[in-house]
Design a binder for these strands. Structure first.
Lengths: 205, 205
DNA sequence: AAAAAGAATTGAGTTCGTTCATTTTTGAAG
DNA sequence: CTTCAAAAATGAACGAACTCAATTCTTTTT
């Protein structure tokens, strides 16, 4: 089970991820070469390709870990939502956005999202896409939970609304990371305005 | 005005665009090398870079022409919208989606959208982003026009709703081009379901 | 314990996008 | 018609991601 080979493999994978994470964040994804990561992780460039399909896949592995955390912290919002619909959505979305730039730069996000569109087939790209799907479902879950508690009008297609809310926050996040000088406050204000309309519609009669 | 130099420049640009457009479509963006395009257009690789910032910028020039057409054909929908909100949105969005794969492959769209996120600064990337903004505004215009004609409830933030509708259709389109085997009918069905909710909200009292 | 099998690492080589010093072409001035 | 300057084209050279045949390291078998 924990033979030498297994341990070495796990260790190398960890070293590569740590080195890449630090280097990407400090110097930018584009500025870092595979050789830089390999050297920092004490492996050869060729070895790195035994662990990750390509440079982008390595980035998506890092970003996926971040999204896992976001998903986790979203759970508590769904479990104990504020009774106001607008506030609920704002809290969940705020949780998503707040986490987003803690470990990852805007450039890393841009590249990650670009890769997940352009090369959706690599292992970690698929994982990232799956996580995105889970986030979307979490928004749907929140709306259903609001309906269950009587905080939101029932008889409205929760999955469709949730999907729309998620697609919107995702697209707004893309606009946000596309502009290096756009502050988070602008993003929050814009999405609050958009969600206000959907929240109004969901408000119980 | 129409000196030899000007004419040659325009001609070379056109030849490059035509060659690239055909080759990308027939063999895929990734499979085509700059040299292939240069040869087909009867220029050197270096010359190509006098006309386009890089390979991706060339693709975005091609995609932008397509979006211009989409925008143009959207105008007539906004000018003469059906009186039902859901039908209006469906018609406009159907126009967008229908055009989308006439000249461009899914791979071209994937790559184009990826580049517009990752490298928003190049000339044609900026142009593509601007066109995207115009499309979003066109959706807002449609909703405002519906309100003006009494086909949609007034007193609702048309710009916010329009932005949400557009962000949603954009994100759904991304999902669509990410999966090579997803038929257009699936995309239309999904967005129709989502827009039904927003249309219901906009329905005049 | 030696040998065989096979898993993993290695780094030189390939490919392709991009750059840039040089050459060629164009249009203007004398 | 020549000369000159600016604009544009060229292709060899460069850099970085990625590949793969050869090698080294683990594990299993006898």
């Amino acid at each position: 089970m924990t033979g030498l080979r297994e341990r070495q493999k796990a260790d190398r994978s960890r070293r590569i991820l740590e080195a890449a994470s630090r280097l990407f964040r400090d110097h930018g994804y584009g500025a870092i070469r595979i050789d830089d990561i390999a050297q920092a992780a004490d492996v050869s460039a060729g070895t790195l390709y035994n662990y990750f399909a390509n440079k982008g896949d390595l980035l998506l592995a890092i970003v996926s870990m971040e999204v896992e955390e976001v998903l986790e912290s979203g759970k508590s919002v769904v479990a104990h939502p504020p009774s106001d619909v607008a506030e609920s959505l704002g809290t969940l979305i705020g949780t998503y956005y707040d986490h987003s730039l803690y470990y990852l730069s805007k450039e890393m996000w841009r590249t990650a999202m670009a890769i997940s569109i352009e090369a959706p087939g690599t292992p970690f790209s698929a994982r990232y896409t799956a996580l995105d799907g889970k986030l979307a479902r979490q928004v749907c879950d929140l709306i259903r939970e609001m309906q269950r508690r009587g905080y939101a009008r029932i008889g409205i297609d929760a999955d469709a609304v949730g999907q729309v809310v998620f697609n919107n926050l995702n697209q707004m996040f893309i606009e946000y990371v596309k502009q290096d000088d756009m502050p988070l406050s602008d993003l929050l204000r814009a999405t609050a305005r958009q969600n206000a309309i959907l929240a109004e519609m969901l408000r119980p009669v």
